[in-house]
């Protein structure tokens, strides 16, 4: 990382930390919290989908499992952090359940398997826990948004930081090799199965923690709600719109998604789905690297142009 980048990141974190202190409006803090929640989900999806090249269509299952078990443990008297951690581990257990058989096969089996797992859990949880899950009266009486905001902020920093360390490690190098050319990776001694399972476990663990944070945050919801497929597809869309396989991509994607959705929701209500659907198709077709690639291309074009202009200028001065 360059020095400019370090300063920029430090500044960004400082702004995020100070936000609830400076801005006291709950609706703004809530919006920022949602952005952070989606950064968590999108960045965790990106570890497996963006860096390892394995399409997970059931991210909501891991998110939902984290929420379900955290809510259960926390409300039955566990303290918050162990409950959230347990939610993350439960998500990993289910991830391995589907990943171990599916990754032995090439092709779409993993995508289908995760989609099936998520749908089965969505329906089952809906049937078994059909009552709305509300916080206890004593929690409601003392409910504050700010600690929830910080919880998500810490989690988002943890996931982004881990991703950064991961992609600069030997493990991350192996993951990217598996994404690019699985057979070539194998022939270099990179075990594709091992790397996919590790990436999946990390990704599911973070999705589970995010679910736990959601259970801590949300006052009342149907237990099946965090299992609903839109969590998966929204995260995926953010990753692709922002830039898959980059650290900043999911962050930009999440910010863009939440802000645009809020703006559209004011005027068009559910129409934002159509807008994002079209945008997603356009990005996949014309901009496979998302906003991050668009930015890089623009920079490169700009650099070329100013270089050409620089040459021209120097000609003029020699003419003089």
């Amino acid at each position: 990382m360059g020095r400019k980048q370090v300063i920029f990141i430090a500044l960004l974190i400082a702004i995020l930390v100070l936000l609830p202190v400076v801005v006291k409006k709950d609706n703004i803090i809530n919006l920022a919290l949602l952005v952070l929640l989606y950064i968590c989900l999108a960045s965790s999806w990106n570890i497996l989908g963006g860096y390892t090249g394995q399409t997970n269509l059931g991210h909501a299952a891991f998110f939902g499992l984290g929420a379900l078990s955290t809510r259960f443990l926390w409300m039955s008297g566990w303290s918050l952090l162990p409950s959230v951690l347990a939610g993350g581990l439960l998500a990993v257990a289910f991830a391995l359940l589907i990943g171990i058989p599916a990754f032995r096969l090439r092709g779409v089996y993993f995508a289908i398997g995760t989609l099936a797992l998520a749908q089965i859990l969505y329906i089952t949880v809906g049937n078994v826990f059909s009552d709305i899950s509300s916080l206890r009266p004593q929690d409601l009486a003392t409910y504050q948004l700010v600690p929830r905001y910080y919880f998500f902020l810490v989690l988002a920093l943890l996931i982004t930081g881990t991703t950064y360390l991961l992609v600069n490690s030997k493990l991350g190098l192996g993951m990217m090799a598996v994404r690019e050319e699985e057979e070539a990776a194998e022939s270099l001694g990179v075990s594709a199965l091992k790397h996919k399972l590790l990436a999946l476990s990390i990704s599911a663990f973070f999705a589970g923690l995010s679910g736990g944070a959601f259970a801590y945050y949300h006052v009342g919801y149907y237990p099946r709600f965090p299992f609903s497929p839109e969590w998966t597809f929204d995260s995926m869309m953010m990753v692709y719109i922002g830039g898959a396989g980059t650290i900043i991509g999911p962050i930009i994607g999440a910010l863009f998604f939440v802000v645009v959705r809020e703006l559209l929701a004011l005027k068009l209500v559910e129409l934002h789905l159509i807008v994002f659907g079209i945008l997603f198709i356009l990005v996949v077709l014309f901009l496979p690297g998302g906003f991050v690639e668009a930015w890089k291309k623009m920079q490169a074009a700009f650099a070329r142009r100013s270089k050409e202009r620089g040459v021209k200028v120097s000609f003029q001065t020699t003419d003089d």
Partner: peptide
């Protein structure tokens, strides 16, 4: 492998580092 099968999205150095993976 036939056709090289290099990792096109990664840098030359990263490709070489992957060669020394074991």
């Amino acid at each position: 492998p036939e056709g090289g099968k290099i990792f096109t999205g990664m840098s030359v150095l990263e490709n070489l580092e992957l060669g020394a993976f074991v």
